[in-house]
Design a protein around this nucleic acid. Structure first.
Length: 374
RNA sequence: GGGCGGAUAGCCAAGCGGUCAACGGCGGCAGACUGUAAAUCUGCUCUCUCUGAGUUCGGGGGUUCGAAUCCCUCUCCGCCCA
């Protein structure tokens, strides 16, 4: 069985996903290795030491460099990265949003211009499936259209229509490739529909007919108010099947994770722990801190006194501030490490709380802590 | 001793009669970042009773309606000739 739900408390769920390369306890947070590496020098050993069970790669960026054939030649993305655990590849659907200035959408697919050299890159559902099969991740995402926020409702409707159409094509192409490769790869569908409940419902129902082993919610955390994101999760909760993992793409802040878990989400990924780590912001049990702030110059405390990561065992805020200001790469690595550890620890605590039927009180206490510095 | 060339806000450095409180960079301060074109981006950084006013461009003096910008002089720095 791919997904087994083991505990639930109201809508919050905990379970386990089983792949050929290992299991993933849920709710899970997946660090992002867009180009096959967690930025700022976090190694596979680092990830394992903090309890990470699955990481992400990106189809678009890995296609541009080094190319899926190179990755396939190494035996797949997991071997290539020396991670060797479960991996997931995003499809390039987010690049439809993030690279909006250098792409053209049609019903056939999306024509990108390479940010590397200006080459025209045509992504169709079939092409994306071929690339994701060559990359060989354990979970692969259907090619979707992620519209911006705000957007005209017509634009969102069209994105839902294309996303469904492309999902069908992805499923068909995936089935053919799967038969040929004999590998185990699980294709997830992605629900679109912006902040419109009726479009979300339509998108989810159309995708559910295709019976994907997992369902993702895309098109959120693109600029809409946080409450809208929570509302959409809450709205979709009874529509999505309970026996399949739900993946809220691109989310989020520690608070977002708690709010979304409460509304039935099982999987997350987000650049925040690593990007903010590189930009000098640390997540702590007492809220975010900006380590370059002058007030930490002679602060001899760790980033988070409640954290047991090695950064918090060894280094003071004053030292971290100094190496950050000095531009030493160690500062970015240490903050990235701490932030990823903080996220993993938070997810571990969330899972324990759900399994012990005390998630509601855990969430309340955690949110109270995050507000200390706010 | 003589001849050139310099001295601009914390530092470097543009400006060379009005549109200059003075380009730009560094440093400093603050903020942003949510399926990563991000070790990135944005704002502020002389003083004040701050949508206005006051003092600045080595010191002093002068020319002019008006000077960081022109003239005289002093001080200091660099290069060259003795």
């Amino acid at each position: 069985m791919f997904f087994a739900l083991t505990h639930s408390e109201n809508n919050a769920r905990s379970g386990v996903i089983t792949t050929a390369r290992g299991t993933i306890q849920t709710p899970a947070f997946m660090p992002i290795a867009t180009q096959g590496a967690i930025k700022a020098g976090i190694t596979p050993d680092d990830l394992r030491s903090m309890g990470v069970e699955i990481i992400l790669g990106n189809t678009f960026h890995l296609h541009l460099r080094p190319g899926e054939q190179v990755v396939a030649d190494f035996g797949g993305i997991q071997e290539f990265c020396a991670w060797q655990g479960p991996m997931l590849t995003d499809s390039g659907g987010f690049q439809v949003f993030s690279l909006a200035k250098i792409r053209k959408i049609s019903d056939e697919g999306v024509e990108f211009r390479s940010p590397l050299n200006g080459d025209k890159i045509l992504f169709t559902p079939e092409k994306v499936m071929q690339i994701e099969h060559d990359l060989g991740a354990d979970i692969i995402m259907a090619f979707d259209e992620c519209p911006p926020h705000p957007a005209e409702k017509k634009e969102v409707e069209s994105a839902v229509r294309r996303t469904t159409d492309w999902a069908k094509k992805c499923k068909t192409a995936h089935a053919v490739l799967l038969k040929k490769s004999g590998k185990e790869q699980h294709l997830f569908g992605i629900v679109q529909g912006g902040v419109h409940p009726e479009l979300r419902k339509q998108s989810a129902e159309e995708l559910l007919e295709l019976d994907f082993p997992g369902m993702a919610i895309g098109g959120l955390s693109v600029g809409e108010p946080n409450q809208d994101m929570y509302d959409i999760c809450e709205y979709l909760n009874p529509i999505l099947p309970t026996d399949k993992p739900r993946y809220l793409m691109g989310v989020g802040t520690p608070r977002d994770l708690l709010e979304a878990v409460e509304r039935g989400i099982d999987m997350f990924d987000c650049v925040l722990p690593t990007r903010n780590g590189r930009h000098g912001k640390a997540f702590t049990s007492g809220g975010d801190i900006n380590i370059v702030s002058a007030k930490y110059a002679v602060d001899k405390n760790p980033l988070d006194e409640n954290c047991s990561c090695f950064v918090c065992q060894k280094f003071t805020r004053g030292y971290l501030r100094h190496i950050f200001k000095a531009g030493e790469i160690l500062g970015m690595r240490l903050l990235s490490h701490h932030n990823l550890y903080f996220y993993q620890n938070l997810m571990q605590n969330i899972r324990s709380a759900i399994r012990e039927n005390r998630f509601a009180e855990f969430k309340k206490a955690a949110l109270y802590g995050f507000s200390e510095n706010a």
